[in-house]
Write a protein that binds this DNA or RNA. Structure first.
Length: 741
DNA sequence: GCAAGGTC
């Protein structure tokens, strides 16, 4: 028997279908499916893995974070225990019956490594198979390409797999060593640990530096002139053609020059064509989902579900060009029944020739993301339907005509000053008809001709300020990461999600916490290598060298170890400084404002016995002011105070959506807010989703601490000498995320 | 309780 091992269940199934001479028999071993068929006259079994089935790990004796010196991890042995027990068992049982093995995992570096991992399991079961291994390299899961690859079997590339293993080892060595060092230096153990990694840390640095840029930004004043004109019809607004005035006097002068009428001196029209968008690859798909309010991590999860259910194609691809083998008409036929867009699919089918758009990136591993099956709205959750619709509409858009618009500009003269307005109207909607996400609202402008005179009914000088650079949205960050080579299409959503889960960032657009900023700063200052995306670029070059046989895994990993030893030495010599920087950040995150009675800082504390959190005064025991806190979700200081009662406001994350509230339960505004929330809850109860909503709300109810006298000593210790640095910049932080319910 | 990379 011949055993074919591929990377995932779906690939195993397709390979069986493509190669089978006759029927395919389905079987299962411990919930792992395999497919039995005849190929070239021999019984053949095809089985799929679940990606990596081994996960590198340090031996048991290194497991105590507090007892083991982190530097010991630099040279410690790395084990590769099985992480997918069921798959390993299935492989073993089939390997015992096999006479030869064909590795058919994805045709890339990680795929080669995954194949070699599987082989290690195969040889455990039957060592003599070592002489009977071949590799099938196909670049697309199509019948033609798969049969070709199985007719031209090659050898497994151990160099390529070694390159992947070097990446694995280096990531674990650096990640574990520095994560433990940073956690120990700051005494953050258990779930409070602070993580460090080749991809996450440079990503955090990007976010933190942008925030610091915003804080350092000095807004510059400028003035704009806005006038309202009327010609019998609706009044409309125009701007001064000069745009921004840097000098107020100049702007004032221009404003006073304006007369009571304005004359049209020019009407300009310009037609524009917007080509239809390119087919979706992972990044463009996740970016589009992010603009719909579904973050990359959730969007990737939903896409995965839709893929396993057969509604969309494989969601991890770099390709933006439909392969010739993809039958576009067949896809359209399937889509004819889809709610809201079926008609568009039908209309496209009626066209003679289909000319899909093409993106810049063309790879052959997988097709771009497109719909593969019909599903009704009722069969999906709301967010799943949104994503399915997005994929369906994008597919239809790529087959649609360009959209055409007309831009009209009206220029006026009033007292020698130039005024202008303009608007764009879509003349042929083309692809925008089926893909409305990219649509901008039409801007109607009055129908005027050259020489027409209209009244100036209002004129105004607008005082404005230049704005700091914007924060990264999740979609934008995803693209920047890709440009810098950070992470892969499959991991970037997880990396971003990790930053949230570690309490390094919150909200969207992404705001770093003070802890996140201080960890980024500490790493940048004392362990610059791990804080820069250059490390990834260098690693990529080394991996190419390994796979080309120019060097070997051992040399590359050892060189990396040497570098880490240097970095570690430097970091270790600055332990106190590093810890101070990070603790300033952590304390700042926990400092919510000033105590109304003693003027000390109000900080987040935990009751020693119940572990429940509350707000306590730093002046304790002299000052015993406390406030209750919601026990669920993250508490983010806003730096603002309640306009009603003057007590500090906080942002609470983790419920349905972030909310902002003051911490005083007796505040009338707060009472009202809670009453409104209660009513909203009752209103929701009638609906389908009422159960969940009620629970989330109840969990957000604040409680008073029961034993105020038992203020936790560790919390008190941590606040020693805390002056807090959260005052000045916070104003800006607060303004962005206000979405109080 | 470490990372990043696959896939579910």
């Amino acid at each position: 028997m011949r055993l074919i091992i591929s990377e995932k269940a779906n690939a195993a199934k397709k390979i069986a279908q493509f190669l089978a001479e006759g029927k395919v028999k389905e079987g299962k071993h411990r919930a792992v499916p395999h497919h039995t068929f005849d190929w070239k006259g021999e019984e053949t079994v095809s089985i799929g893995l679940k990606g990596h089935i081994l996960n590198p790990e340090y031996p048991e004796e290194y497991s105590n974070w507090q007892k083991v010196e982190p530097s010991e991890l630099i040279d410690a042995e790395i084990l590769k225990p099985v992480s997918e027990k069921g798959v390993a068992a299935a492989i073993k049982s089939l390997a015992k019956k096999a006479d030869s093995v064909i590795v058919a995992t994805d045709y890339d570096r990680e795929g080669e490594l995954i194949g070699v991992e599987a082989l290690s399991i195969v040889f455990e079961a039957k060592p003599e198979l070592a002489d009977s291994v071949k590799r099938s390299r196909f670049s697309a899961l199509t019948k033609g390409e798969v049969t070709r690859a199985f007719d031209e079997l090659v050898e497994v590339s151990h160099d390529l797999a070694d390159a992947g293993e070097a990446r694995q080892d280096i990531d674990l060595i650096w990640g574990a060593t520095l994560t433990r060092w940073v956690s120990r230096a700051t005494k953050r153990y258990g779930s409070a640990f602070l993580s460090v990694g080749r991809v996450q840390s440079p990503t955090l640095v990007l976010i933190a530096e942008r925030e610091l840029e915003r804080r350092a930004f000095k807004p510059e004043p400028y003035w704009e002139i806005e006038a309202t004109l009327k010609n019998g019809g609706d009044p409309f607004k125009v701007a001064h053609r000069h745009g921004r005035f840097k000098d107020e006097g100049e702007a004032q002068a221009a404003l006073s020059n304006l007369k009571e009428t304005a004359r049209v001196v020019e009407v300009r029209q310009k037609a524009a064509t917007r080509p239809a968008p390119a087919p979706f690859n992972t990044t463009s798909f996740l970016t589009a989902a992010a603009s719909l309010g579904i973050g990359p991590s959730r969007a990737a999860r939903i896409a995965e579900d839709l893929y396993t259910d057969g509604y969309i194609s494989y969601p991890r691809t770099d390709n933006t060009v439909y392969p010739a083998s993809l039958d576009l008409r067949e896809v359209l036929t399937v889509l004819k029944g889809v709610e809201e867009v079926g008609e568009t699919a039908g209309a496209l089918l009626a066209k003679g020739e289909l000319k899909p758009t093409r993106g810049k990136k063309e790879t052959t591993d997988h097709p771009p993301i497109y719909p593969t099956g019909y599903v009704s709205k009722a069969a999906l959750r709301d967010d799943q339907w949104k994503i399915y619709q997005l994929v369906v509409r994008r597919f239809l858009a790529t087959l649609s005509e360009p959209s055409k618009s007309l831009r009209t500009t009206l220029n006026f003269d009033s007292g020698g000053e130039g005024l202008t307005t303009g608007g764009t109207v879509i003349t042929e909607e083309g692809w925008l008809g089926v893909y409305p996400y990219s649509r901008r609202a039409d801007e109607e402008i009055p129908n005027l001709g050259e020489g027409d005179v209209v009244n100036v009914v209002e004129k105004e000088l607008l005082a404005k300020e230049t704005q700091p650079p914007g924060r990264y949205g999740q979609g934008r960050l995803l693209n920047v990461m890709e440009d810098l080579g950070l992470g892969t299409k499959a991991t970037r959503p997880n990396i971003i999600q990790n930053l949230y889960d570690r309490g390094y960032v919150h909200s969207d657009p992404i705001i770093p916490t003070e802890k996140g900023i201080s960890v980024a700063q500490g790493l940048k200052e004392f362990a610059a290598e791990i804080a820069s995306h250059e490390m990834t670029a260098k690693l990529e070059r080394s991996m190419d060298d390994i796979s080309e046989g120019k060097t070997d895994k051992r040399a590359v990993v050892d060189e990396s170890r040497d570098l880490l030893r240097e970095v570690y030495k430097h970091l270790d010599s600055a332990e106190e400084q590093f810890s101070d920087i990070v603790w300033r950040g952590i304390r700042s995150d926990e400092t919510l404002g000033k105590c109304p009675e003693s003027g000390h800082n109000l900080i987040v504390r935990r009751n020693r016995r119940s572990r429940k959190r509350f707000v306590g005064c730093e002046g304790y025991p002299d000052c015993t002011v406390t406030y209750p806190l919601p026990q669920k979700g993250s508490i983010i200081p806003t730096g603002t105070t309640c306009e009603e009662c003057g007590s500090p406001e906080i942002k609470v994350l983790g419920g349905r959506r972030p909310w902002i509230t003051c911490i005083d339960m007796d505040c009338p505004k707060k009472q009202e807010q809670m009453k409104a929330a209660e009513e909203a809850r009752k209103a929701r109860e009638g609906e389908e989703a009422a159960k969940d909503a009620g629970k989330a709300n109840a969990e957000n109810e604040a409680e008073r601490p029961s034993e105020v006298s038992e203020v936790a000593s560790d919390a008190a210790k941590s606040s020693n000498g805390n002056s807090g640095n959260g005052e000045e910049p916070r104003e800006k932080l607060a303004s962005s995320g206000t979405r109080a319910s």
